[in-house]
Computed example of a mutant assay.
Amino acid sequence: MRYIRYCINLMTAGVFILLNRIIGIFCPVRKNKAVFISDVRAENGGNLKCVYDAMGEDYERATYFKADRRNWSSFGKFCKLVYDMTTAEVVFLEDYFRYTSYYKVREGQKICQLWHGAGAFKKFGYSRAEGNENIRIHKGYRKYTHVITSSEAINSCYAEAFGVTPDKVRATGVPRTDIFFDEEYLKETKTRLHETYPQLRGKKLILFAPTYRGLRADDASYDFNRIPLDEIYEALHEEYVWAFKWHPALYNNLANGKVRMPDFAKYPDFFLDLSEEREINDILTVTDVMITDYSSVIFDYYLTGGRVVYYPYDFDTYYNGRSFYFDYEEYLFGPVAKTPQELISAIQASAEDESEIRRKFGEKYMSACDGRATERVIQWVFEKNGSEECR
């Protein structure tokens, strides 16, 4: 199966290159045309949707979405993708997209990476080449003309990760964090979630949102034995509801049966799986305690002021493989648990005053996120008036 997939991927790469070059001969770049691309989401969302919606009708907008990059698109959809990429003034991405490796950037074209994770936690891209993982780095990264970050202090991390010069990286802020400054959106979202999930009413929400384990997204898994459901239920069910939000790569493997889903059906009023809620920031608006490990979700969640408990049960193994941009302690603004018992105790304990730690965390990693990130991205990429506000 792997050999068949390899051959098909090789063939589609050749078709992409051929179409891209032919279309480039006969079709000009269309001013103010943008194409929004993701092969890890089924529909428009996240940073892409924020920019898409804000651009309005003055721009020509095209999209290409699919939930799992391992699935193949129809030939017609694939041809439209190549045409839109070849003729767009701007290609907006939010993640790795392999066809940028074969894509010829024409004069007047730009590729803007609206990376899906705020801050700078786990090393990614070319930063991983320094480790001992022995992985192949995506060559398309170096073609990016615009890369956004959540703070000027981490611009160098993104320049290194994508192999681009510092002038191509700018701290515009992260568009999807603008919602945390929109009171009307927050109110509507909280109402929607409480109506959709009545279990949340009258209880505090614990959100369990770890990153996946595995060298690549295709291999995403998790050690579910680290979540003793019966023990957690007995200790916490009177005051809390516990929701799982699996990383999209892991959720895809759970959905297709590659990884076995833990069975929590006997506690339907306590354990919820909110993975189908694609926008995790919506869930963060109703979260009281978030449990994570090495996930960039801590940067978005910081803006809510909520409590965090870190659960890096495999810290030594994970760090020796993936590594981080800064010392792990610099990402902490909550207690750390290594065992299920420590995790439960940390949730039950009274919150400590960590205001100074939070202030330093926000200043370093999230200083550009102030509710106007989407506006600054559009100004910078399309060179509109006001772009000097971006750092």
Rank of each mutant, 00 (worst) to 15 (best):
V35R: 01
E239P: 04
E356W: 05
L284D: 00
E352T: 05
S355L: 10
W242Y: 14
D327M: 11
G214H: 03
N253I: 13
F333P: 01
L10K: 14
L114Y: 01
V164T: 07
D167L: 05
Y99V: 08
D68I: 11
R106Q: 13
Y311N: 00
D273A: 13
A171K: 08
M366K: 02
G214L: 05
K66Y: 05
E231I: 10
W246T: 07
C112S: 14
I280D: 04
V259K: 01
Y141H: 08
L186G: 06
S151P: 05
N132G: 10
Y99F: 09
A159E: 11
G173Y: 01
I298N: 00
T317Q: 12
Y302E: 05
N252P: 03
V40Q: 09
D223L: 13
Y319E: 04
G56P: 13
L205R: 00
R41L: 02
F75A: 15
Y294C: 03
R278D: 11
E279Q: 06
T317A: 15
Y99M: 13
V286G: 01
V164F: 04
N71K: 14
T292F: 08
P28E: 14
Y318E: 03
H194S: 07
Y141A: 02
D327E: 15
Y365Q: 03
K168R: 15
A217P: 01
H146F: 10
N20Q: 13
K338F: 07
G14R: 14
L10Q: 07
I17E: 03
D282F: 02
Y365N: 04
Y302W: 02
F16P: 03
K245H: 10
T165H: 13
D182P: 08
F315H: 08
F361P: 04
G257I: 09
H116G: 15
V297G: 06
L215P: 05
Q199D: 05
L343T: 03
L186N: 03
K33H: 04
T177D: 05
R307I: 11
C50R: 06
W242K: 10
F264H: 03
V336P: 08
A217Q: 09
D178H: 08
I25M: 14
I232K: 07
E329D: 10
N132R: 09
E130Q: 11
R106H: 09
S73P: 07
G125S: 01
E352L: 06
M261F: 04
W246A: 12
Q379S: 12
Y251R: 10
E43A: 06
F92Q: 12
Y311G: 00
